[in-house]
Nucleic acid binder design. Structure first.
Length: 178
DNA sequence: CGCTGGATTCGA
DNA sequence: CGAATCCAGCGC
């Protein structure tokens, strides 16, 4: 399969988060179907790391769309994001959960930390261009029903805490719990 | 340079 | 409910 074109990542994070549901995430020989995402809509979004401004860590979010933003959280989990929006517009979509498609996975994929661990994706792939191997996203099977809800674990985000920017496949048993 | 706390997960 | 485990961001 051909990776989704860079133009796919050009719209805002909310649109891309919704559009990524059902798409296939591939890393080397491992493939999963994305079933849960969250949109981080810009520097004004207090839940986004981009709200701290342009720093060494957030730099990639201010760059061109279609790149991976991967960071370490709680000292032990790597979370995978996709940068969206035009260059200079720091938006991103967190990939929270997926369904296994290949059998080579090293564990569960029903949570953002577990997903990257099962795929073997690490910070070494931060800034990687998702339009080229080994880490890519291709078209897949869209969900029948999509649920929109508040994001998980962003209680610190003030007025942005309850913004309904989380999307998931209502019929998938692989959506993260909570 | 020291301090604080986190887009999580698992086990008690 | 709290520990694990480490580093970004910030203040001094």
């Amino acid at each position: 399969m051909t990776p989704l074109p860079r133009t796919f990542y050009l719209p805002n994070a909310e649109v891309v988060a919704r559009a990524l549901l059902g798409a296939t995430l591939t890393f080397e020989d491992k493939r999963v179907r994305i079933v849960e995402t969250e949109a981080y809509v810009g520097p004004h979004d207090l839940a986004s790391h981009a709200s701290k401004g342009r720093t060494p860590r957030t730099e990639v979010m201010f760059g061109p769309p279609g790149r991976a933003y991967i960071y370490l959280i709680y000292g032990m989990y790597e979370l995978l994001n996709v940068v969206t929006g035009p260059e200079g517009d720091a938006q991103a979509v967190l990939i929270r959960a997926a369904e296994p498609l290949s059998g080579a996975l090293k564990g569960k994929t029903d949570g953002p930390g577990k997903l990257t661990r099962a795929l073997g994706v690490t910070r070494a792939h931060n800034r990687h261009d998702l339009c080229a191997p080994p880490l890519t996203i291709t078209a897949g099977t869209p969900p029948t029903r999509v649920v929109r809800a508040p994001r998980i674990g962003v209680d610190y985000a003030g007025t942005w805490r309850d913004a309904p920017l989380r999307f998931y496949d209502a019929d998938s048993p692989f959506v993260s719990r909570r």
